[in-house]
Design a protein around this nucleic acid. Structure first.
Lengths: 202, 202
DNA sequence: CCTACCGATCGGTAGG
DNA sequence: CCTACCGATCGGTAGG
């Protein structure tokens, strides 16, 4: 079995899910169709679906890629910052930048799919719940550290603050793309800062 | 032309868009199919689409119904309250109640569809933009009144505060349905209160 | 409102 | 990775 063909196959699979992520960020995970991917990538439908078996597996693989992109863009830039408030402020920066200069056509894939699949049952719903649950747990941990450090008020509820930050970040999607609010990222960043008790940072 | 048949037709049309709104709140406006509506309502597909002509018209009619439900549930309960802060606090109450005790299976239809259609082009996108734009304008106006009354700080940006409230309200959808957060409404209400400078109301 | 039908596209398979 | 094909469903129309 020649090495090159396996490499090429991995490359093709990667190309498929990257294209799927881009489509999904605009049209949703249900908006992805095998036929469209085949046309876009100049392949046969069988060649596309052969890498995954079923459309659901393709959706799960696409979600996985989107989660990796999110971690790379929002989490990786702050991992060297000190845990607690300093890292949280870095997250605000990275998160709003990620939403304001999107790498996928439809903005934040995770936000779009969260609203698409929240009310459905199935494996995609469950995988999404895990992905976002992990991220929220991270936020809660950092907020708790900041409270323990005395950098945030002791009566702040970490779960509630994490909810607020997440909602304010997700809100950038429709603000930018539906109403065309060019200030969405700044609004979101300031609102997140307010949650963290940082009143006027600019 | 007998009166009854026109009334019945109106009733049928209404039944179709009510069912469509319920499906749409879960599966999105693209998740609505004429065949499924026909099955659910025990009609023929031709009988369903005959009331609208095209699927896009059906989607627009469904959006219109959802907008009416929103106004009825969130705006009407507060219209007798004094403009400004008092009315804004009433909106927080009505909005979180509307999201926490949803009349449609998938929670807030407007929030779901905002995230579904934000990145698309077309008449549904445009109609949605109008609906939500009208609501945001209302919020901005009430916030401005509260500032003029001296009930909110003069340096508060009404646009930004409206964005925050909207994002925090929309965030209840995935919080409730994806993670199963039963406290989502309370988190959202408290966060909205914080935006309005009301720190501890319970 | 119905039956009967249209072409297009859906996800997916067989066989190579 | 391909061609060739499957049954099901899509939105929609004709005619009544």
């Amino acid at each position: 079995m020649p090495r090159r063909s396996a490499l090429e196959a991995a490359g093709t699979r990667d190309a498929i899910i990257r294209r799927a992520a881009d489509i999904g960020s605009v049209e949703g995970l249900e908006g992805i169709t095998i036929g469209r991917l085949a046309t876009d990538l100049e392949m046969s439908k069988a060649g596309v679906i052969g890498h995954f078996g079923t459309k659901e597996e393709l959706q799960l693989a696409t979600l996985e890629l989107a989660a990796e992109l999110f971690v790379e863009q929002v989490w990786k830039p702050v991992e060297d910052l000190r845990p607690g408030l300093e890292r949280l402020l870095g997250i605000c920066e990275a998160w709003t930048r990620y939403a304001d200069e999107p790498i996928l056509s439809g903005g934040c894939f995770i936000a779009a799919v969260s609203f698409e699949f929240d009310g459905r049952a199935g494996r995609v719903h469950d995988a999404l719940k895990q992905v976002v649950g992990r991220w929220r747990k991270t936020l809660v941990r950092e907020i708790s550290v900041a409270i323990a450090d005395g950098d945030l008020p002791a009566d702040l509820d970490p779960e509630q603050a994490a909810f607020s930050m997440e909602a304010l970040a997700a809100g950038m999607n429709p603000a930018r793309q539906l109403y065309g609010d060019t200030s969405a990222a700044e609004w979101s960043r300031r609102a997140m800062h307010a949650v963290l008790g940082v009143s006027r940072s600019l």
